[in-house]
Nucleic acid binder design. Structure first.
Length: 265
DNA sequence: CTGCCCCTGTAA
DNA sequence: TTACAGGGGCAG
């Protein structure tokens, strides 16, 4: 479930570990992890390149290399990029200068590592909307786009073209915070509701980024304490934290949506 | 817009 | 043993 906050935390950690180092060797343990590319291409493009920076765009991890190539990593469902050493779910190992290694893990094997040239990178990022925690994400734009869309609110929030980085968890949490039913059509939201939703997105994400950074950067006991606790996601049948009625689960776009039918109208 | 597919661990 | 979860890309 890495969404914007978790990817942000992973990126911060990877940046500290790897920025300025050179990739000595790339070991692809599972060929499908670099699909549709090949291990040979990945090694040829990224081998012996210096890591200029590591950034996040939406849920994409971008490792900027000297010479113009960029490693694009998508963690999909359960991916991770860490320095804790190799285990059974490790798919790609970046051997770095200074004896360090960065490891890409993906137990579900949906996540990918690709090395893109500038044109490919531009194409990959072309469809990604504004960063919700940046100034480019403006309330008036969001409200205007909302007024023009007949999409259900939950599906709208998960559409990466509209806002970057929200997934199943934080889309549901933002809707709960704004007290909006996930099935409401965006263009049928009331005057203040789209604005409420805009604010809720930013609040939820800001909180979650804080939690994720602690959870990903401190070992052991702090992790559990810092962990973001969803109000609705994954809580079917449990009491709503606001009103006590049972959280419900419905299907939207083939995926589960959790919400409180009493609080969210 | 809906639905299928990718892929595999885990829950039923 | 099977169903399901899930982001995103793509076909229909």
């Amino acid at each position: 479930m890495p969404e914007l906050p978790e990817v942000e935390a992973v990126v911060a950690r990877a940046r500290r570990a790897a920025k300025g180092r050179t990739i000595r060797k790339i070991e692809v343990l599972r060929a499908s992890a670099v699909r549709p590319q090949t291990a040979a291409l990945v090694a040829r493009r990224a081998g012996n390149r210096r890591i200029e920076n590591i950034e996040r765009r939406g849920k994409n991890i971008l490792i900027r290399l000297a010479g113009g190539y960029t490693i694009r990593i998508h963690l999909k469902l359960n991916g991770d990029l860490h320095t804790d050493g190799v285990n059974w779910s490790s798919r790609v190992i970046f051997h770095l200068s200074g004896g360090r290694q960065l490891v890409f893990d993906e137990p579900r094997a949906l996540g990918t590592v690709n090395v893109l040239d500038e044109k490919q990178l531009a194409a990959a990022l072309a469809g990604i909307g504004p960063e919700p925690l940046s100034r480019e994400f403006r309330a008036e734009d969001f409200v205007e786009a909302a007024g023009k869309s007949r999409l259900a609110a939950k599906l709208f929030l998960m559409d990466q073209k509209r806002v970057a980085g929200l997934g199943n968890v934080y889309a549901a949490e933002a809707l709960f915070r704004a007290r909006i039913h996930p099935g409401r059509r965006m263009n049928e939201l009331g005057a203040g509701e789209a604005g409420e939703l805009y604010g809720a997105i930013r609040e939820v994400l800001r909180e979650a980024v804080k939690s994720a950074k602690i959870a990903y950067n401190h070992p052991g006991g702090h992790k559990e304490a810092a962990r973001f606790k969803p109000s609705v996601y994954g809580r079917e049948g449990e009491p709503c934290v606001r009103c006590g009625s049972r959280i419900r689960r419905i299907q939207q776009g083939g995926r589960s949506t959790y919400f409180c039918a009493h609080c969210q109208r």
